[in-house]
C-alpha cells in the first residue's frame, strides 16, 4: 500500500454561520456534557470551541501540525503523527510531564487536573472514524461548507479556489499553509488572521528544528569533553609525578601521593 495523502480540515470563516453544530457534534461523539454555546475555551472535556467575536466565528482546535512540537518534545513518544495526518495521543505511554502543553505554540493540549490518573486531552481529528472511512464528526455536522474534510492537498486547492472566486470576501492567505512548516487544519478568513485572535507571528520554520540544532550536537560535545577531561587528568597527574621524581614535592598543595582517603 502506498503511503496515503495526509488528511486535514479546512475551516472557512466566511462560510460559517456560527451554528456551532461542529462543537455539538464533537461533544456528542466524545460523550462530553456541556453547552456548545458556552464552550469558548478548550478543556479536557471540550476539544473544539467557537467563540464569536465582532460577529466573526473563531474556531479553535488542534492544528495537527506537519512538524508538531508536541510530538518532538514527548520523552516517551506518547504523541505521534499518524500516516493519515492526525496527531494522536497514547495515554498508556504518557508519564504526565506536560512538556507537550508547554511546547505547543497554539496552547492546545489540556490536562485532567482533577484526576488521580490524568491524561492529556486534545482533538485527534476523529482518527477512528477516519479509519472506518467516515469524516470527522465536526465536518460531517457542518450544514454549510465551512468545515471541510479532505486530504491536505485537496483542501489547499479548494481554499485557493474560494479565494480566487470571491477575492472581495477573503483575505488572500491560507492560514496554516506554511506556518511552522504547515498545519493540517487550514483557515480561511475575511481579514488577516492576527486581527481575529489567531497567533500569526509564528514564522514558517518548524519549531522542533530549534531543539534539534542543539540536541544533535550533544554526542560530539560528549566525546570532546570526555577526551579533554582525560587529557587534563593525565597532564596534571604527570606533572606531579615528575615533580616528585625530581624531588620537588608538588607545590600548590598538590601532593597527590599523600591522599588521605
Amino acid at each position: 500500500m502506498s503511503s496515503k495523502e495526509p488528511t486535514g480540515l479546512l475551516f472557512d470563516m466566511v462560510e460559517c454561520i456560527g451554528c456551532r453544530n461542529c462543537v455539538k457534534a464533537c461533544m456528542e461523539i466524545h460523550g462530553f456534557a456541556g453547552d456548545p454555546e458556552e464552550a469558548t475555551t478548550l478543556s479536557a472535556t471540550c476539544y473544539t470551541t467557537m467563540a464569536v467575536e465582532d460577529d466573526y466565528p473563531i474556531r479553535n482546535m488542534c492544528r495537527h501540525c506537519q512538524s508538531p512540537s508536541c510530538v518532538s518534545v514527548c520523552p516517551v513518544g506518547a504523541l505521534q503523527r499518524t500516516e493519515e495526518g492526525p496527531v494522536v495521543y497514547d495515554a498508556s505511554r504518557c508519564i504526565g510531564c506536560r512538556y507537550c502543553m508547554v511546547a505547543c505554540p497554539f496552547n492546545i493540549p489540556r490536562y485532567e487536573w482533577d484526576k488521580a490518573v490524568p491524561a492529556v486531552r486534545k482533538c485527534d481529528m476523529c482518527i477512528d472514524r477516519q479509519r472506518e472511512g467516515k469524516k470527522p464528526a465536526c465536518a460531517e455536522a457542518c450544514p454549510k461548507g465551512a468545515t471541510v474534510f479532505g486530504t491536505r492537498k485537496e483542501l489547499l486547492a479548494e481554499a485557493w479556489k474560494r479565494i480566487k472566486k470571491n477575492p472581495r470576501d477573503y483575505y488572500p492567505h491560507v492560514y496554516g499553509e506554511h506556518e511552522l512548516g504547515g498545519t493540517s487544519v487550514l483557515f480561511l478568513a475575511p481579514h488577516e488572521v492576527a486581527s481575529l485572535g489567531y497567533k500569526a507571528s509564528l514564522g514558517n520554520e518548524p519549531l522542533p528544528r530549534l531543539t534539534w540544532q542543539v540536541l544533535s550536537k550533544l554526542p560530539g560535545v560528549g566525546v570532546v569533553s570526555a577526551a579533554t577531561l582525560m587529557a587534563i587528568w593525565w597532564i596534571t597527574r604527570r606533572r606531579d609525578e615528575v615533580a616528585l621524581a625530581e624531588g620537588r614535592v608538588g607545590g600548590n598543595g598538590r601532593a597527590r601521593h599523600e591522599e588521605r582517603n
Binding site: 518534545v73 514527548c74 520523552p75 516517551v76 505511554r93 504518557c94 508519564i95 510531564c97
Partner: peptide, 24 residues
C-alpha cells in the same frame, strides 16, 4: 509529585524519543 503519572517514570528508558530534550 509533579509527574501526572509518576509510576510511569521508567518509560523513557524503554520508550525513549531521541528528538525530546526531556528524554535526554
Amino acid at each position: 509529585f509533579d509527574l501526572g503519572k509518576p509510576w510511569n517514570i521508567w518509560h523513557p528508558i524503554v520508550m525513549g524519543n531521541p528528538t525530546s530534550v526531556m528524554f535526554e
